[in-house]
Amino acid sequence: MNHNTPLSPRPLRHLAEVHRRVLSTAQLRAHGVTAAEASEQCRAGGPWQQILPGVFLLRPGPPTSEERLHAVLLYAAREVPPAGVPAQPGPDEPHRPGYTEAMITGLAALNLHGFAAAPPLLSLERIEVLVPRLRRLRSTGCARIVRTPALPAPCVRTGLPVAPVARALADAVAGLSDAVTVRRLLTEAVRGGHCEAASVVRELTRARLLGRPHVVDAVDSLLAEGRAITEERLYRMVREHGLPDPAWNVDLRLPGGPHLGGVDAYWPEQAVAVELDTRAPRQDDDAMWSEYVRKREHLERLGITVVHITPRKLRETAEQQAAVVRTALMASGDRDPAAYVVVLPR
């Protein structure tokens, strides 16, 4: 047998090109190649190479970034269907092997998500792959195993399962000590619209990374960046959906009485306020939420309608949020008059 010999009578034309080059021991066996034959092909100077335990590259030379990604997933996946699939795909549909309970994470995942601040895939010595905590796997070669109690739902990038941005960021930051790189990655996540600041902080908190000074500094900048972006989206929503101009970023106070709190937008004639929920999910999250609730309930007892909007809703459903605000403004005439409050710049 040589590298020009067909693997078996079972055809390979249903496989995408990379899946003809990177195969597992089980897939080779499904094509009639024994373990001994595979080892023979991987001898010194041979046409194949074993790049991870049980994973073979069916050509000489350094693996490409695409081949390394598939190899890492083949190594870490719990079950990979054999190369000859029982259900035949259509003539123009390449079969992609399933990568069960494994997904790319860390810097490689950020690269696949399109992060400009992420390094090139070929420059990464190891590719991180996320697996369930109880899997019996070890980091080896170009594969670095990252364990989690519960796998998130993967995103699909270039046909590969990839961890969501916030999770991939946390796994990347865990291995970084350079403050500039951490700040660039976190900032691009929010500024580039990949995810909200709160979801990033939530994952960093879960990974217990907020005790690192360079991470805390980057998070503070991230939250300020996220707040500014969310406010800009609120301005755009009001403008693009034809809502009347409110008083922006104001404090409300009873005449000669206590301070009622700040709101992001306020329509005095209709007594309607908008408050953006840009809380960071840290340890004091419950206390902060309780303060939000107390303030809203106090304002509503005074006859002021409070519309609570999260950054995610504002980003994904701005038209729907504008309709909610418009409805509140139109309904003001049917409500009892609100208490008079003093509106001050914040």
Rank of each mutant, 00 (worst) to 15 (best):
L7T: 03
S8K: 00
S8R: 01
R10F: 10
E17D: 12
L23G: 04
R29F: 08
T34M: 03
A38P: 02
E40Q: 13
A44S: 15
G45P: 08
I51Q: 08
I51C: 11
V55G: 09
R59W: 01
T64V: 05
S65V: 06
S65C: 05
S65N: 09
R68Y: 06
L69M: 06
A71E: 04
Y75T: 03
R78I: 06
R78Y: 15
P86E: 15
Q88R: 14
P94L: 07
A102D: 06
F115P: 02
F115R: 02
A118C: 09
P119Q: 14
V129Q: 14
R138S: 14
S139R: 01
T140K: 13
A143H: 00
T148D: 02
A153F: 10
A153Y: 07
P154K: 06
L160G: 05
V162D: 05
A163S: 08
A166T: 03
A168M: 02
A170K: 00
A172E: 05
V173S: 00
A174D: 12
V182Y: 04
S199T: 13
V200H: 04
T205G: 03
A207W: 02
V216F: 13
S221E: 09
A224K: 12
R227Y: 14
A228R: 01
I229M: 11
T230N: 01
A247M: 11
N249I: 02
R253H: 06
P255Y: 10
L260M: 04
Y266E: 06
Y266P: 07
E269A: 08
A273H: 03
R279A: 14
Q283Y: 09
D286P: 03
D286A: 15
W289P: 06
Y292R: 15
R296P: 02
L299W: 00
E300S: 01
E300P: 00
R301S: 03
V306I: 04
T310G: 01
P311G: 12
K313Q: 15
L314C: 10
V325L: 08
T327S: 13
A328S: 12
G333T: 11
D334P: 08
R335P: 01
V341D: 11
